[in-house]
Computed example of a mutant assay.
Amino acid sequence: MTPALASPSPRLATPRALGGVLLLALAAFAVLGPWLIEADPAGQDLGASLAPAGGDYLLGADHYGRSLLARLAHGARLSFGMAFVTMATAAVPGVLLGLAAAWRGGWVERLADLASTIVLALPGLMLVLLLLAFAPGNFGPLYLGLALTLWVEFYHVTRAAAATVLKQPHVEAATLLGFGPGYVLRRHVLPVIAPLIGTLAAFAMATAIIAISTLSAISVGLQPPTPELGSMIVELLPYYAEAPVHVLLPAALIVLLVLGLQLVAQRSSR
């Protein structure tokens, strides 16, 4: 009997399915939560400072009496949105440059390699911090710095994978028969590299979420009262003894976001 080589491994499908369900649940919370939860994430009620879960506050309130449920929903939407925009901004030029370098070679590849080498010469967070120095606490420099750091991975993976595919006999035959770059890329190259790009995209989003939360936690990223998960942890940390669960909630949400992306990004090993 011929084994079904193309069938996905159950050991791989289960974690990826779990990651997909987790991400769908978190995405629904991030997208629908701000509309379903009527509480204002910036609305203060000092009489409800550090209120426990239950009653008027389902997940409790922070030290300013702001609804933690509302702030977590907005924080999840902010993290998802910024991570997706950062990933897309890094993926588009990285993939296009990788395809161009693999197809054309020569000076195109040399220029792209030089640009990627310059970026790699700087530590990733250093590049982000340099841009944040011009406008600390703003979204623009933060997202641009992360995108400039992440595009290199998309470029290198795309160039290597596309170059391998373009050297295969059936692809060379299609080129010799007069099929244009659009046909070759669409029918032969993109189907092969698409899973790799999807995996990179998930890892890039996870990296962006961690970086955004870390920079906000050290007060160089997004600043309070913006409901960002990293800054929420730092704001609540002095009150850990009185309300430990309040501090753990945004941290747990970051872990779940990154965990879901890492599970979805898993690839089968040959």
Rank of each mutant, 00 (worst) to 15 (best):
G98I: 09
A101Y: 05
A102M: 03
A102H: 06
W103D: 10
G106E: 06
G106C: 03
V108H: 01
E109M: 15
E109F: 09
E109G: 15
L111I: 15
A112F: 13
S116A: 15
T117E: 13
I118Y: 11
I118V: 14
L129P: 00
L131P: 04
L132A: 06
N138A: 12
F139D: 06
L144P: 05
L144A: 13
G145A: 13
L148E: 00
L150R: 12
E153R: 06
V157A: 09
T158S: 11
R159A: 06
R159M: 01
A160G: 10
A161K: 09
A163T: 07
T164F: 05
E172K: 13
E172G: 11
A173N: 11
A174N: 10
G178W: 02
G178Y: 04
G180D: 12
R186H: 15
V192I: 14
V192Q: 12
I193G: 00
A194D: 11
P195W: 13
I197S: 04
L200W: 06
M205C: 04
A206E: 04
T207G: 14
A208L: 14
A208K: 09
I210D: 03
A211D: 00
A211I: 08
S213G: 03
S213P: 09
A217L: 14
V220S: 01
P225V: 12
T226W: 00
L229P: 02
S231L: 13
